[in-house]
Amino acid sequence: MNELKAKVYQTAITQLKEKEALLSTERKNIIESILEDEKSSAGDKYETGRETMTQDLNTIEGQIKQGKNDLEELYRLHTIKEMPASVQEGALVKLGADWFLVAVSIGAVKVEDTKVFLLSKNSPLGELLIGKKKNDQVNFRGKTILIEELF
């Protein structure tokens, strides 16, 4: 496996684990606040505050679930060791000056001095790239871009 690609996976996995830990702490704090509020509040103000905290809790639980799914997908794609002949899930692609990993949509990670964007195969750019080979061109947002590298 390409060294940059391996580092991108490791960095992305680490970031997702850190985010999961932060969200779990936030989840715990909200649950504690809900339980504490039950002991000391009554009336409409209590109900509104509790509903807001419950909505926050549901949002965080959804983010935790999505993070776990993204982490599982990164682990699965990281096990693919062969060099792809064309762009597929798990491929590291250099388009012009930018690097992209076709995996999960979690944004950019920085590996040493290189910024790599992680995108889903179902994203607009991901859909354009799937099946293309090194030295093929793609037209994205009015620009024709050469696939310079593929790992």
Rank of each mutant, 00 (worst) to 15 (best):
M1Q: 12
E3S: 09
K5S: 01
K5C: 01
K5H: 08
K5W: 12
K5T: 01
K7R: 10
K7C: 05
V8A: 02
Y9C: 01
Q10P: 02
Q10K: 14
A12H: 07
Q15R: 09
K17I: 08
K17F: 00
K17T: 11
E20G: 03
A21F: 14
L22Q: 11
L23A: 03
S24A: 12
T25C: 08
E26S: 09
E26C: 07
R27I: 03
R27W: 00
N29T: 10
I31Y: 03
I31T: 07
L35E: 15
L35H: 13
E36C: 01
E36S: 11
K39A: 14
K39T: 13
K39M: 14
S41P: 01
S41V: 02
S41G: 11
E47I: 12
T48N: 07
G49R: 14
G49L: 10
R50K: 15
R50V: 06
E51K: 15
E51G: 10
E51R: 15
T52H: 12
M53V: 00
M53C: 00
M53K: 15
Q55W: 10
Q55S: 10
D56R: 12
L57Q: 07
N58W: 13
N58V: 13
N58P: 07
T59M: 14
I60C: 00
I60H: 00
G62M: 04
G62E: 10
G62V: 04
Q63C: 06
Q63T: 13
K65C: 09
K65T: 13
K65D: 11
K68S: 11
K68F: 15
N69W: 14
D70I: 05
D70K: 09
E73R: 15
L77A: 05
L77Y: 03
T79A: 10
T79K: 15
I80Y: 10
E82P: 08
M83S: 14
P84Y: 07
P84Q: 13
A85T: 11
S86M: 04
V87Y: 06
Q88E: 12
E89F: 01
G90Y: 06
L92W: 03
V93I: 06
V93W: 03
G96D: 06
A97I: 12
A97W: 11
D98T: 07
L101Q: 05
A103V: 04
A103W: 09
V104I: 10
V104D: 00
V104Y: 07
V104F: 03
I106H: 01
G107T: 07
A108S: 15
A108T: 13
A108P: 00
V109M: 04
V109E: 04
E112G: 10
D113A: 12
D113Y: 11
T114V: 13
T114W: 09
T114C: 02
T114F: 06
K115S: 12
K115E: 13
V116R: 05
L118Y: 05
L119V: 13
K121P: 12
S123L: 03
P124V: 02
L125Y: 11
L125E: 07
L128S: 04
K132R: 15
K132T: 01
K133V: 04
K134D: 00
N135T: 11
N135F: 06
D136P: 02
V138H: 03
N139I: 08
R141D: 05
R141A: 05
G142M: 00
G142T: 04
T144E: 15
I145E: 03
I147E: 02
E148G: 14
E148H: 10
E148Y: 10
E148S: 11
E149R: 11
L150R: 03
L150I: 06
L150H: 03
F151N: 05
F151R: 02
